[in-house]
Amino acid sequence: MKVAFSTQDMQRVDAHFGWAKNIAIYEISAEEYHFLEAVQFDGELAEDGNEDKLAPKLEAIKDCAILYVAAIGGSGAARVVAMKIHPIKVNEPEPIHGILDKLQVVLQGTPPPWLRKVMNKGAEKAFNFYDEEELSHA
């Protein structure tokens, strides 16, 4: 599963989603994690009510299951959740690798229901359809 981090320094979750200079994206499983890409943002990122600046960030995280942020505005959070991405706010700057280590431990155990749900993001739903006749002879 892919996890995104709002970051100014590429080391810690230390940025408001709308103001972040970088979004670091990692792939994580119970066995390992690795860095996939950093998406960088330029221009005027300060709080200004301009919702259009969120569009490139939302595009960058569209395949992610979780987004870690230092803060996120209400409309940004609503748009992230609408994309079936689970936003998680950290209370103070936290190292990305520390978060990944903790998340990996959770994945090795029994993840909570919300995490099991987001882990399936992008997975194809498989339905088994049986012919009525096959079922009647079973």
Rank of each mutant, 00 (worst) to 15 (best):
P93G: 01
C64Q: 03
N120K: 14
Q8T: 01
L107C: 02
K89I: 15
I66C: 06
N128R: 08
Q104T: 03
A77G: 13
I25Q: 01
E94K: 03
G73K: 03
P112R: 01
C64N: 03
Q40S: 15
S6D: 06
E47R: 08
E59I: 00
A77I: 09
H86L: 11
D63P: 14
L45F: 06
L103C: 08
A71T: 06
K117R: 14
I61M: 01
H137D: 09
N128Q: 15
F5Y: 11
T7K: 03
I61L: 02
G109E: 12
K117N: 13
P111A: 07
P87H: 07
K21I: 07
L103G: 12
F17M: 08
N120D: 04
A30W: 11
G109K: 08
V106W: 07
G18Q: 00
C64H: 02
K89L: 11
V69L: 07
E134C: 04
R79I: 05
V106L: 14
I85T: 09
I96E: 00
Q11E: 12
W19H: 12
H86W: 12
V13M: 00
K57D: 06
E27F: 04
A70R: 00
A77S: 13
F127H: 12
P56I: 08
K53T: 13
I72Q: 04
T7L: 02
P112D: 10
E31Y: 05
V118H: 07
P56W: 05
K84P: 06
K125T: 14
M83Q: 01
F35C: 10
I85W: 09
L107K: 08
K102A: 11
M119R: 10
Q108S: 09
N22M: 07
G76P: 03
R12F: 07
P87D: 05
F41I: 07
A71Y: 11
K89P: 08
L54M: 06
H86V: 08
M1W: 14
V13Y: 01
P87Q: 07
A15N: 02
E132A: 15
V39E: 13
G18P: 07
V39R: 12
G109M: 06
